[in-house]
């Protein structure tokens, strides 16, 4: 699963590298997008489609699957934001340091949780359907946003908070006017990662009847149609790159002015 921005270990590295969007990201991602799009076009035009392939790769069908995939990913991202940011704020308030440290350790190990297994367990628990997929995705993508919220709030210069306190800002004002704005770049990094995880995991939704472009890839695998596999995989990759690009733009332009 993609964890573009949350790979460093908070115990050894400062989180600041989470904050900045490399200039090059916004160039390299479109370059890859264009290359893969050209590859897709070439495959589409120059491959011989037999009857099965043609019916699997019906454009209307692909469009529906893409929409399913994106819808599921977006809903789950919204759910993650609504759950993880308040939770992250809660555990970073004074008086809960133990909870926070344990949480960060657990979240680190959570990267080893097989998304595939989690999805299937949610299926067992909640049955088939879009809601199950959204919940499973949210459970998995919760980790980076929660972790980045914690790290983002923790990395705010203590002297700035101290100065705010010294000027008579109360706890809520300090959170709203100082801590959250200064944590935005890191939190945005987490949301971007979560979005990418969700788009990626939504490809597996087909396993539990959740639709998405995974259907096309799986059909290609089952019926041994490499072209179908390739088209499905490329479409999924293009969607993910597009989302990553949008996330990169958001991360870049939503960061408060004045931060270096």
């Amino acid at each position: 699963m993609s964890t573009t921005n949350v790979v460093d270990n908070p115990e050894t590295l400062p989180a600041r590298r989470n904050q900045s969007v490399s200039q090059l990201d916004l160039i390299v991602i479109p370059v890859f997008f264009v290359l893969l799009a050209i590859l897709l076009t070439v495959v589409w035009i120059y491959s011989d489609f037999d009857g099965t392939t043609t019916s699997i790769l019906e454009p209307d069908r692909l469009w529906t699957q893409a929409q399913e995939q994106i819808t599921v990913a977006l809903w789950s991202t919204v759910l993650v934001i609504v759950l993880a940011i308040p939770l992250g704020i809660l555990v970073t308030r004074e008086g809960a340091p133990r909870l926070k440290n344990n949480l960060v350790t657990v979240l680190g190990l959570g990267q080893a949780l097989p998304a595939y297994g989690l999805l299937v367990l949610f299926f067992v628990a909640f049955g088939q359907g879009t809601l199950t997929v959204v919940l499973a995705l949210a459970a998995f993508a919760l980790l980076p946003v929660l972790r980045n919220t914690i790290v983002g709030l923790e990395q705010v210069d203590k002297s700035v908070i101290e100065a705010g306190k010294g000027m008579g800002l109360n706890g809520f004002q300090r959170l709203r006017k100082i801590e959250l704005p200064l944590a935005v770049p890191v939190i945005m990094g987490g949301i971007r990662t979560a979005t990418i995880i969700n788009v990626g995991m939504a490809t597996l939704a087909y396993l539990i009847g959740g639709g998405g472009l995974g259907i096309t890839i799986a059909a290609g695998l089952k019926l041994n149609r490499p072209v179908t596999i390739l088209v499905g995989a490329l479409l999924v990759a293009l969607i993910a790159l597009a989302f990553d690009f949008i996330g990169g733009l958001a991360q870049r332009y939503l960061r408060p002015k004045g931060l270096s």
Partner: peptide, 18 residues
């Protein structure tokens, strides 16, 4: 670093099958 991070962006099922 940018190129390596693009790989991480690509959904796993896509990268496994591509």
């Amino acid at each position: 670093l940018s190129i390596a991070s693009v790989f991480l962006t690509i959904p796993s099922l896509a990268l496994f099958t591509i």
